[in-house]
Simulated scan of single mutants.
Amino acid sequence: MSTDRLARRYRRLVRAYPSGPRREELLGTLLDAAPPGRTRPTPAETLNLLRYGLRAHLGRPGSRWVVVAAALVAITLGYAGAAFAARATWNAVPDLPSGAGLAEITGTVFTGLPVEGARSQDGLFLDISQKSFAEQLIFGRDEDFEYATYEFGAAGGYYVAGRYRPYTDAVIARMEADGWTVRDVWPTGNTWIATGALDESGRAFWATRDGLSIEFGANTISNSDRMPPGSFYASAILTRLPPWYVTAASIAGLLLGALLGWLLTGWVSRRTERATPGARLAGHTTATLALMITLPQTVIGLIGMVTEPLVLDPPIAPFWSLSLTYGYGCVLLGFLLAVITMVTAAWGGGRDAAVPTDAAKQGTIESARGAPEP
């Protein structure tokens, strides 16, 4: 019974290797070498099987550059997978509050005052350009793509009678009593050029509750030429925060995309290993160019993905927004070059080097058992 359980677990692990007789040979060797009573692979065996199994997909056993290329492609497609998964999951996120729910929020911030406000755009994302799908596919989106907001304040120009400091303190107290968590409070105003000191003329804070964000600001300099005497300007911006399941979907998309990138690199590598010099040069050139033009925004996007849930600031745009705006031309060109690479590998490549030599088989078996790979 224990041998059957061990065999099932080994069989799942050897699937990390390309399909073929290598799997069964490796499985048999692992079972023969296992001591009596063992029911599961050791951590070292698991790590080695996954490590060398993924390496076997790349072919070219004497090359280190293919590993570097596979890692870069995995990072790039991992980011693409994270971006697609995040955007798709946003379709399940509730819209900004409306009706009684919105009135409860605005009434807490501006208690006893008539309130007016406007949404930057319907839905959860702002895209003023309103391009058609075909235009977005060809040209991408405009630079103003970001999270949609609802800005509101006291009716009649967002002016409130009184002093901004005690009013801001009262708003914070009301919101905390209503379940909001105030994340930060800071002074606002102009900075003296000579000294760098802040000439305070207002206060602002950021608060969150139930996946929503409010940034509140009160000051005496906005629209000061039209401000009634004894008043100050106050407004609040309501935004939807990225929920935890969007972050979870991003991580899942990252892992799946990275695995796909590694396997695609392996397929192209094995197909072009025995290709004609012209096909090999064409495939390598287009793949290198695709990586060169997509890696910068991939790195920026991944940094944004990591910092988005951690930064204690109101969100402005999703981590993948750069790929739809400023970097979209690189995304499109990189995708086209990647397609050319795969077509070159499919039509101009040689036989897929999936069947290993006897020496390669023996080296794989020894490496899976923990010995250095020859």
Rank of each mutant, 00 (worst) to 15 (best):
D178F: 01
S213F: 12
D199S: 12
V109E: 01
H57M: 12
R15M: 08
I138Y: 10
V306C: 01
E146A: 13
V109C: 02
L310D: 13
A207Q: 09
S222A: 03
G196M: 08
G20R: 00
L212R: 11
N48V: 00
Y147L: 09
F110V: 01
L58Q: 10
L336Q: 03
T168V: 11
A148G: 05
Q130E: 15
Y164L: 07
T188I: 09
G62K: 12
A360L: 13
A218G: 05
L58W: 14
S367G: 01
P374R: 11
V182W: 07
A44L: 15
T42K: 07
A100K: 09
S323Q: 04
E116T: 10
W262A: 00
G107N: 00
A248C: 06
F145M: 03
R11S: 15
Y10D: 02
L238M: 07
V115L: 02
D95L: 05
G78V: 02
E135H: 10
A177I: 02
R271A: 09
A359L: 07
G329Y: 05
G278C: 04
G304P: 12
L336I: 12
I340V: 15
W186E: 14
A338C: 08
L255T: 07
I293E: 07
D225Q: 09
I105T: 03
F139W: 13
V339I: 09
D169E: 15
M1W: 08
T89W: 11
E215A: 09
V115Y: 04
A34F: 08
W347N: 09
A33W: 07
T168E: 01
T42Q: 11
V68A: 01
P187S: 11
T39K: 15
P243H: 15
S129Q: 12
Q121C: 09
I340W: 13
L102F: 10
P228N: 11
L54T: 06
T265V: 05
L302S: 10
G28P: 04
I214E: 00
Y233M: 05
W186Y: 15
A249D: 10
F84P: 02
L6H: 12
W347E: 05
P296R: 14
R23T: 06
P314F: 04
L212M: 13
L58N: 13
R64Q: 12
D313A: 15
D178G: 00
V311L: 08
P318I: 08
D184H: 08
L333V: 15
F125C: 10
T220M: 12
T195P: 01
V115Q: 01
L289Y: 13
V246D: 10
L30R: 04
R11F: 12
A44P: 06
S213P: 13
G202M: 05
A33I: 09
T191Q: 04
N190G: 08
R240Q: 11
